[in-house]
Simulated assay, not measured.
Amino acid sequence: MPRTVPRREALHQATMSRRIATIQDFDVGDEIAWGSLATISVATHKRTGKVYALKVLNKMHLARKKMVRSAMMEKEALVTLCSRPELHPGIVRLHYCFHDPVNLFFVLDLAPNGDLKEMVLKNGPLSLECARFYTAQMVDAILFMHKAGVVHRDIKPENCLLDESMRIKVADFGSAYVNPDLETYRTSTFVGTAMFISPEMLSRSKCDPKGPDIWAIGVCLFFYLFGTYPFAAATDYLVMERIKKLDYAVPEGCEPEPADLIKKLLVSDPADRLGMKPHSSPKALRDHAFFAGPEKIEWEKLWECPVPKIEPNPALKGQQPEDKNEDDLLAKFEELQLVHDDNLN
C-alpha cells in the first residue's frame, strides 16, 4: 500500500517542491499597503521579471502581538489552496514563502486596483449589476475554499482585492481555519472583524464551521448596495449587540431579489442559512433569484465574462456612505471656520 502522508507533512512537501527563494531574488519597490502586522510592497523577480505583491511581517512584532499562529495559519491556508490540482482565479496565490532573521515574507499575486471597500467608498453604492457580479465572484471563491477544507473567517470587502481586469482575489487568510473535514460541527472561535462577525461566533456555539463565511456574504452584499453596514453602530460592542439581536433592516426601495438574499443569509441559526446544510446547499445559494435575474450569472463563465461597468446605484446616486474616505475628510479641513468668542478672553 502507498504510504499515507500526514496533512502537515504534505503541506510542507508542497511548499518545499518550489524553488527556494530569498529577498535577494527580488527588486522591492514602493509600499502599496500596510496594516498593524504587515507591509505590502511591489516586488519584481529579478530572474523572470514577474511582478508580485511582497507581504512582510516582522517576527518580533508578531511575537509581541501574539500573532505568530496567525501568520502560520495564513501560510497553511494558502499552501492548501495552491496545492490543489486546480487553482481558483478568485483566490490570491502564494508563489514563494521564506524568512530571514528578522522578517517573514509572502510573495503573492499582485492585485493593482485596490479592493471592493475602496471601490464603494470612492464611487458610492454599486449598481445592482455590479453588486450581483462581485457577490457571485465572492460566492464562487468561498465555496471553492470550503470544498478545499479552508474557512476564511474574515470575509469583508477590503479582503476582496481587484486584479488588473477588475475581478476579485480573496486575500488575507490570517484568521483561517484549515481542516479537510469541515462537515463536523465545532465550537466557533472568536475571530474576524466586528461588522462581519456571525452570531454563532459571538455565542461560541458548536456549529458548522463554514457558517461565518456565508453570513459575511450577506453583510458584504448589503454594503455594496447601500454603502453602509447592516449592524453599524458607534462602537464594536454596540455592533455585536445588534448582531446578537439581528437588529437590522433592508432599506426601503431595495429590489426584492437582493433583499430576499440578504434576509436568507443574515439568519442567526447557521443551520437555517441559505447555502448551509441541513436545510439548504451551496447549489441553492447559487440558484437564488438574485443570481438568476435579467443579468443572469453563468457560473461556468463567471471568470471569463466581461466585467460590468463600475457605476453607482442610480437610486442612491449622490448619497455618501457612512464610512467616508479619510482623504475626503482631510480635504475639508481648511473649510472649517474659526469662530472667535469674546467671552473666552
Rank of each mutant, 00 (worst) to 15 (best):
P6G: 07
R7W: 13
R8V: 15
A10Q: 10
H12E: 10
A14C: 09
A14Y: 07
R18F: 12
R18I: 06
I20A: 13
Q24L: 14
D25L: 07
D25S: 08
G29H: 06
A33V: 09
G35S: 10
T39I: 05
I40P: 00
H45C: 10
H45T: 07
H45P: 00
G49A: 11
Y52A: 06
A53T: 08
L54T: 03
V56T: 14
R69F: 14
E74Y: 06
K75E: 02
K75D: 06
E76T: 13
A77E: 08
L78V: 09
T80F: 10
S83G: 08
R84C: 09
P85Q: 11
P85G: 03
G90Q: 04
I91R: 05
I91E: 01
R93I: 07
H95C: 11
N103F: 11
F105K: 08
L108A: 07
A111C: 15
N113T: 11
N113C: 12
G114C: 05
K117D: 03
M119T: 08
M119E: 00
G124Y: 02
L128D: 05
E129G: 00
A131F: 02
F133Y: 11
A136G: 12
M138S: 06
M138G: 09
A141L: 09
L143K: 10
F144E: 03
M145T: 03
A148S: 15
H152R: 14
R153K: 15
D154I: 07
I155A: 02
D163Q: 04
E164Y: 07
R167G: 10
S175P: 03
Y177L: 13
N179V: 08
Y185M: 14
T193Y: 01
I197F: 06
P199F: 06
E200R: 07
E200P: 06
M201P: 04
M201L: 08
S203Y: 10
S203C: 11
R204I: 02
S205Y: 06
P212M: 07
D213R: 07
A216Q: 00
A216T: 01
I217H: 00
G218F: 06
V219C: 04
F222T: 00
G227D: 00
T228C: 09
T228W: 06
T228K: 12
Y229T: 08
P230H: 05
P230E: 02
A234L: 12
Y237L: 04
R242A: 01
I243R: 12
K244M: 15
K245I: 10
D247N: 12
E252K: 04
G253T: 01
G253F: 07
E255G: 12
P258E: 03
P258M: 05
A259S: 13
A259W: 04
A259C: 09
D260W: 12
D260P: 06
D260S: 15
L261I: 13
V267E: 02
D269R: 15
A271G: 11
A271F: 11
D272K: 15
D272T: 00
R273N: 03
L274F: 02
P282W: 11
K283Y: 10
A284V: 04
L285M: 07
D287K: 11
H288M: 08
A289V: 11
G293L: 15
G293Q: 10
E295F: 13
I297L: 10
E298S: 11
K301R: 13
P308A: 09
E311L: 03
P312L: 01
K317Q: 09
Q320A: 01
Q320L: 02
E326R: 08
L329E: 01
A331R: 14
A331H: 07
F333I: 05
E335P: 02
H340G: 02
D341R: 12
L344D: 06
N345M: 14
